[in-house]
Computed example of a mutant assay.
Amino acid sequence: MGTPTVQNPKKISAPKGVKQLNKAASGEKGTLVTTCYIISASGIAVPPAKVFTWVNFKEHMFKGAPPGTLGLAAQFGWKNSELFAKSSSITALDIAKDNEVIVLTIPPHCSNHMQPLDISVSRSFQMHYNAAIESWMLHHPGSPLTIYEIAECVGIAFQCSMSPTNICSGFH
């Protein structure tokens, strides 16, 4: 899931005749950080993996991230097999197989019928992520959100959206 540094603003409505609103959104393109979360049908979510568009990952990019979050860096900021092979995903899959855990990967760009967590978890995550960015912007007027603050916003969204109730309803 993409977690950009630029907020996706909601529509703002005002009474007729009001010409000035106290709300602003960034006009810049921003940077995208890929957030990958792993969820169990039993309602458990492990800390996410974050893929930054950098050649090397730096620890200070994780201020406010959920404890245990995996930090990765890739030239284009996308998930790929080489990146996750370096982080011992192959070992994790072997452990899952040895313990009779079924790992289900869902192809991207499918309808919500093929991706059961789109509505229950992903939409909730995006809503809470946008709210966290909005809150950050209100507390830091005039400062653009950078990749160094994304982890904090993801931490807030992750805590709010990865509840057992949300996860189980997606698999239901």
Rank of each mutant, 00 (worst) to 15 (best):
G2W: 01
M127Y: 10
C168F: 05
C110I: 14
H172C: 04
Y129D: 01
L93I: 10
V51Q: 09
N130R: 10
P67W: 02
Q126K: 12
G30M: 00
N130S: 08
S89P: 08
L138T: 03
V33K: 12
P67E: 02
N8H: 08
M114T: 15
W136G: 03
S124F: 10
K23D: 01
I95D: 06
L32K: 15
V103M: 09
Q20S: 08
E59N: 14
T31H: 15
G17F: 01
L104R: 06
S120V: 10
G68C: 00
A131I: 08
G142Y: 00
F158L: 08
I133Y: 05
N8D: 06
A74W: 08
C168D: 09
V101W: 10
T105Q: 01
D98K: 11
F62M: 13
N166A: 08
L21G: 03
L93Y: 14
T3G: 06
G2V: 10
A131L: 07
T35S: 11
F57Q: 04
V55W: 13
K63S: 10
Q159R: 12
H60A: 02
L145M: 02
F84D: 10
A151G: 04
V154T: 15
I133W: 03
E59H: 14
C36M: 12
P164M: 10
W54K: 14
Q7I: 13
Q115D: 15
S81Q: 14
I44L: 02
K50Q: 15
H109D: 06
P15S: 09
A41I: 11
F125M: 06
S161D: 12
L93N: 11
V154D: 00
P66D: 00
H60Q: 08
S42V: 11
V101T: 15
M127C: 15
N166K: 00
Q20I: 12
P47N: 10
T69W: 04
I147R: 08
T3N: 03
G43N: 09
K19I: 07
K63C: 09
F84E: 08
M162A: 14
Y148C: 07
V51M: 09
P9R: 02
I102C: 04
G64N: 13
P108M: 05
H172R: 01
S122K: 07
V46M: 01
P108S: 05
I156V: 06
H109F: 05
S88D: 15
D118E: 13
A92L: 07
N130K: 09
P48R: 02
A74L: 03
P67V: 04
F84A: 09
I39T: 15
L117M: 07
L93G: 13
K29H: 13
Q75F: 12
T5S: 06
K86C: 10
E100K: 11
G77N: 09
W54Y: 13
S135W: 05
H139P: 03
I39W: 10
S42M: 02
K29F: 10
A65Y: 02
T105V: 09
